[in-house]
Write a protein that binds this DNA or RNA. Sequence first.
DNA 1: CTTACACCTTGTAGTCGCTACAAGGTCAAC
DNA 2: GTTGACCTTGTAGCGACTACAAGGTGTAAG
Lengths: 163, 163
Amino acid sequence: MTRARIANVRRGAPPGEGATDPRAGVAEAPLTIGELATQSGVTPETIRYYEREGVVPEAAREGAGRYRRYGAADAERLRFIRRARDLGFSLGEVRELLALADGNPRDPCCDVNRIARAHLAQVDAKLAQLAALRTELDRVINACDGVVAVAECRILGALSGVT
Amino acid sequence: MTRARIANVRRGAPPGEGATDPRAGVAEAPLTIGELATQSGVTPETIRYYEREGVVPEAAREGAGRYRRYGAADAERLRFIRRARDLGFSLGEVRELLALADGNPRDPCCDVNRIARAHLAQVDAKLAQLAALRTELDRVINACDGVVAVAECRILGALSGVT
DNA sequence: CTTACACCTTGTAGTCGCTACAAGGTCAAC
DNA sequence: GTTGACCTTGTAGCGACTACAAGGTGTAAG
């Protein structure tokens, strides 16, 4: 649940590259994995994991370096993934959504709807279950008022099956 | 979430052992792991896993057999564990609760309270988070009315950061 | 040029709570 | 003795990362 944000300040900003083209790939102002991580709110480890899993494409390794280099499109894709994950979509669902987004823009978006609605139903189910659990837990806790010794503890009693 | 229940009917009930002493250990009417599983609502694999993890003690292997043998106390302990797990306590928390239940009955039960209340707080936090997520997901889905092509899909748009 | 050091690389193992198998052993009934 | 259900151990897998370790690279400053 905790998403680490890593301080990742570029030590030397290359001068004279003000115009940020929104359609830029890796061409303009390549990012290191750490910078990409900072921009998209995930850790470098997670990005590498996504690459292994094929959720993001293999990064280019520009020039002589062995470092991965990223562009604006990669940052966008990662933010997409992060938002979807934050909404509770599984990585598998994210993969499907990405495939749809990557496909023909004229394709119907009913599959997107289907995935999203199925997920909403799952969330509702989990909510109901968790609410019921909370009620029960509250009941168990509130039974224990003024009891001081383990022998008479009503919480332990409830867990032991004493109703 | 699905807890398998296994049919486990004793093929030959040993005769003449009617009195079920609630304080009985392994002495009276030993159970196989499968029978214990049926009685306590977990699978044999889970019981063995709990033994490996030290949540339940190592089972006695009565007589010449290599089979684990259990008594009423073991069934009780497992039911305790299952109830606590059903209430969402982690195995670590279950371990703590068991240690408290195993300890001196005259010890104060404030630790039990602390664990239970901490867990309730966690559940509440998760509930709030899930409810917020649901709201957001619903908003995303409802934005998409009558859109037919992926290019204009508002769900994908929302995930891409278009607000 | 050297040094320093932050950042990167790959690979592997760990987290949680089980679940699923495989290959073989045991027990009770018939 | 033969069935066949049950048990045994060991190992690997799930999801979605996270955490190391051991070593390589890129950049700035001295």
